[in-house]
Design a binder for these strands. Structure first.
Lengths: 377, 377
DNA sequence: TTATAGGATGAAAGCGCTGTCAATGGCAGC
DNA sequence: GCTGCCATTGACAGCGCTTTCATCCTATAA
């Protein structure tokens, strides 16, 4: 521990060849250095074609010489353009948001925007704070996950005067633009898929219950009710963090209550993976003895053994479309999209972890590895 | 698809009871509303105790009435305090950085700082851009992952005039503060651990090779060389993204070349999980037929079947210490820590995926589930 | 009663940059 | 040689806030 090695008593970090503290260079320093006015330097940096070849070269040299980095704060304040896109997601851990954020970065970075991501940690209050922060930073657009903001959040968003996109889920009263899918329908469809395979005893486990997980659960309950099945004691839920370990634990809890369970619909893939491991541990064969369905179709689903059936949501596409719409508004024609609500749907990706209910003994329907894609809706 | 529902022709998002466009409220608006001067409002917001009870109430009311949100840009420009901590990580996907970022958030958010995280996507150029962005935004401190910055990045950092912390790895020439561990030693120790179990044919797979992965690999090679084993054809590496699927693929590739492999050290846990699934698929028993070691000790390692042996790095602690040091400098006494370099070490967490090399038949040494913790170094 | 803190408030001056408009000068066209 | 245009460049006034210093007023001490 502690192979410490000091680099002398109180070293000054920014020390260069000269020994002085060296205040950060600003536009006027560069200007003086290059023998031009500050405005010219500003132009040389932002619109090089407006400046003569000679002057541009001198300015470039001065910029390098001084290690000049423009002060975005001042720039943004003066130009009223921050080039910031504000994004609030409930989790950075959750694999879903990785693709989602990647889409936003892919779209905005090449256009010179900065994507400022804040994490609400599944807390409405933290979301509120995050939104206030982003608005205070004058983000040029705000993209939030979910449609369940607090009243104050809605007020903040409505008076922010920038485009707002609510994603991941569609609702009836979008604040501005809404692009997502029906979590309820997705939960319903996943359950329906298991019912169609002949299963009746279908459990549901859910962790880190947020609004979306809750709606998926409602979809599950609805599907079960529609099939005339009482599922009251088949549900295991917690607001605690969702992990692979918890998936194993919750599945165990279900199992101790209902040893003859036939299938399980997990609120997300981490839980499904945990359930799968628990089956392996207990010698429960998947899918012969038990079918498992996850949610989100994360990368590892296809690689697990057996590969996990899951519900794929178009998270990349969703974010990409949100980005496009927003960009069109803030830098394009300013036109708002015809439908303020866009439903992107979902897909059930059937894989080896689910099979027809065995009548005789180990009859399997969906061969492992095959990826039958069932269109949603 | 497309359950569109427009809310009228070109709705103005910020419309309130009044029909006018409503420019965003600023300090002077609140001041006028409350019948005081702008400075007083500023004070009421930042240091409420400096303002009389009565005035404070009036201002609060005005703030609410107008939906006023302070303009951080202007605030930061005027006060030269941005309350921004700049962080650059190579990946948001990688489970390692989740805990790392959580530590930073846990520490800084309650102190009123905003943690601005930028993703370099394992690209030195993107890192350079990210750093320039953060410096341009006048982050009050910069925390970067790794010690391998470009020359230009180093120059930028050195002339930024704010504390810099390089993390995840320790090196000889820290820019300012360096807190991490020796990736080389960790790779060496993991390999040594397998050697000590009696294994000789130990493969190594690595994806998304960055500097740290490379050093771990060098540690592996060193350990093998020290044991007098030629491992030239036992290594499988790619710069492509690291995924569970790739772990399975790379392990397959190794297997086709060396069917009698006894153990495998994976550059990270995702690859290890992929290798584990591939073993299950092929009926290779872990650890009886093959030992698997991962790296990072992500959450799912302990829950897998069998649980994965991995190398735990103190990522949360590392970030927390970085945060503390930085905070002390920018808001505390300004004192820099004695050792500019702090080595936090690592731990090998032995679990069921590794066992003594079987002499007879399926002899197992480390019982699955037992978590023997071997101190590093 | 008067001197004197000290709390509460305001006025003015920027923070470092950009938008706007004016000024300069070179050069083609007549 | 003069006019007018275009390409460059510069001056100036803020963007919305905080800092600093001055002012006012009330409460307390002498």
């Amino acid at each position: 521990m502690e192979s410490g090695e000091d680099s002398g008593p109180m070293r000054k970090p920014a020390a260069r060849s000269k020994g002085k503290p060296r205040r950060r260079a600003r536009l006027s320093d560069v200007a003086a250095h290059a023998g031009v006015s500050a405005v010219t330097v500003s132009r040389a940096i932002r619109k090089p074609e407006m400046v003569s070849e000679d002057v541009r070269r001198r300015i470039d040299a001065a910029v390098h010489e001084l290690g000049y980095v423009p002060n975005y704060l001042a720039s943004a304040l003066a130009s009223a353009k921050t080039h910031i896109i504000g994004v609030v997601v409930p989790s950075l851990t959750n694999g879903v948001f990785v693709d989602y954020l990647r889409a936003l970065h892919d779209f905005f970075l090449p256009k010179g925007f900065q994507v400022l991501v804040l994490n609400s940690r599944y807390s409405l209050l933290e979301e509120e704070r995050a939104l206030a922060t982003l608005i205070g930073h004058h983000a040029e657009a705000l993209i939030v996950a979910g449609i369940d903001q607090t009243e104050r959040s809605r007020t903040l968003l409505e008076s922010a005067g920038v485009p707002i996109v609510q994603t991941m889920e569609i609702g009836d009263k979008p604040i501005d633009i809404n692009i997502g899918l029906s979590q309820h329908d997705a939960g319903y469809a996943a359950t329906r898929y298991l019912l169609d395979l002949g299963h009746r005893k279908i459990a549901h486990i859910a962790a880190r219950i947020d609004f979306r997980a809750k709606r998926r659960m409602e979809g599950y309950k609805q599907a079960m009710a529609d099939a005339g099945i009482d599922c009251t004691d088949m549900v295991e839920a917690t607001t605690q963090q969702s992990t692979v370990r918890r998936g194993a634990e919750m599945f165990s809890a279900v199992l101790s209550r209902l040893p003859d369970i036939e299938a399980i619909f997990c609120c997300n893939d981490d839980l499904a993976l945990g359930a799968l491991f628990e089956c392996q541990r207990r010698g429960i064969r998947v899918p012969q003895d038990l079918s498992i369905v996850g949610f989100n179709d994360l990368e590892y689903c296809a690689s697990a053994y057996p590969p996990l059936t899951s519900v794929a949501v178009p998270r990349y596409e969703m974010a990409r479309q949100a980005a496009e719409i927003v960009y069109e508004i803030i830098r394009g024609s300013g036109a708002r999209p015809k439908p303020a609500r866009i439903d992107l749907g979902f897909k059930i990706v059937a894989r080896g972890s689910t099979a027809q209910r065995r009548r005789g003994k180990g009859t399997r329907a969906a061969p492992a590895g095959k990826e039958a894609r069932a269109e949603a809706k």
